[in-house]
Write a protein that binds this DNA or RNA. Structure first.
Length: 368
DNA sequence: TAACCGTGGCT
DNA sequence: TAGCCAAGGTT
């Protein structure tokens, strides 16, 4: 760590801070979470922005703040409505953790978001980056907020060759930021590093000729900006075969199921489905048996209406989609619901099952 | 440490 | 197109 950071001595820190912050003040994007420094809104935006693009987040952020304008509103909301607000954003545990943490802030901290790293970092879903982001942006405290942008930018400026895919590497950059950060304007400094990474110092083909801190950049000086940062490749995804069905009862209502409260897509809704472990199970009759065993209901699968391939970050679902019927009377409870096509809009589904529902609607429009 | 946890845009 | 990538956190 010390060996890497010797390159900090080559930086004129005051000049670097000034060039970076001046550029940021002139060029920063007008984003909805930059309208004020409300710690709650900063917090919501930082959670949404985790592994998610700015353009994707903007409409979600606006609607989320409209539905849940403050800590009280989110603390008191139904989880199903909170998940509906997050529908399509991905990484759904983020918002369940956020609501849990907001409730803790309401009860334990009288509704005020903590302003120390020790306290804020204990909140669910608030890791080292998010803690630093809230502390610096909402409270003006000079704490590092090291995300992928910051590691990319500083790896180039300081010529740091450590693998940023390794979790332990983040500490190297936090130490660097602690030495570089402006104590006059920590908020602008941290945001400027990220903004620079997003707009200028991009992963591929960085716009060095437009860069406000080019003269401080050791990678540019050596012509190796395209070799940084060092990031090892991830392992490839595994494949899961599923059969899923839109099942209608005698009244034309659709059977839906709430997923378990942990693991993939936790607490989101889905259509009944079974995993196909062996090739032999791909016969329709066998799949019907699997459904009946899994649901404890008399199921008839009418026909296949399509095939869906859905890619997650670490696995691929290949879903054979059926339309079918159920004869038995079903007891609705917290886990199983029979819903009309109007009522279904109130439930949060992952994108894979939204695609499946679109297949069903298309089938309804063009019967036989 | 490395796997898990989503989605959509880009090359 | 298939892989890479984006303001990470949890286990």
């Amino acid at each position: 760590m010390l060996i890497e950071l010797k390159n900090i001595n080559k930086i004129n820190i005051t000049s670097f801070q000034n060039d970076l912050i001046t550029w940021f003040q002139q060029e920063k994007r007008d984003l909805p979470w930059r309208k004020d420094r409300d710690p709650y809104k900063v917090w919501v935006s930082e959670i949404m922005l985790q592994q998610t693009r700015v353009d994707t987040v903007i409409p979600y952020f606006n609607r989320f703040i409209e539905w849940f304008p403050d800590i009280d509103a989110l603390a008191e909301a139904e989880e199903d409505k909170v998940l509906k607000a997050w529908e399509g954003l991905g990484y759904y545990s983020r918002v369940r953790n956020l609501q849990s943490a907001v409730r803790e802030v309401k009860e334990k901290y009288h509704g005020k978001v903590p302003d120390t790293r020790e306290e804020i970092a204990t909140l669910k879903g608030v890791g080292p980056y998010t803690a630093g982001a809230i502390l610096s942006i909402a409270y003006g405290i000079p704490e590092p907020a090291v995300d992928g942008n910051v590691m990319r930018v500083l790896s180039r400026i300081l010529l740091i060759w450590e693998d940023i895919a390794k979790a332990s590497t983040r500490k190297v950059f936090e130490e660097a930021v602690r030495k570089l950060i402006s104590h006059e304007d920590p908020s602008s400094f941290n945001q400027a590093l990220m903004e620079l990474g997003a707009l200028i110092c991009t992963p591929t083909s960085p716009s060095c000729l437009l860069c406000p801190v080019r003269e401080h950049c050791q990678a540019f000086e050596e012509g190796v900006q395209n070799e940084l940062p060092v990031k090892t490749k991830k392992t490839k995804t595994r494949e899961v075969q599923l059969a899923a069905a839109v099942l209608l009862n005698e009244d034309g209502k659709i059977l839906i199921h709430k997923r378990p409260s942990d693991g993939l897509l936790a607490n989101l809704w889905e259509f009944p489905n079974v995993e196909l472990h062996h090739p032999i199970q791909h016969e329709r009759g066998t799949i019907m048996d699997l459904f009946e065993n899994s649901l404890g209901l008399n199921v008839h699968l009418n026909k296949v209406i399509g095939q869906i391939e859905h890619v997650f970050s670490h696995l691929v679902w290949k879903i054979k989609v059926y339309i079918g019927t159920i004869n038995n009377k079903i007891e609705e409870n917290s886990e199983w619901k029979l819903v009309s096509t109007e009522e279904i809009e109130e439930y949060a589904f992952p994108v894979s099952y939204q695609k499946m529902y679109q297949l069903f609607l298309k089938q309804q429009r063009t019967p036989k």
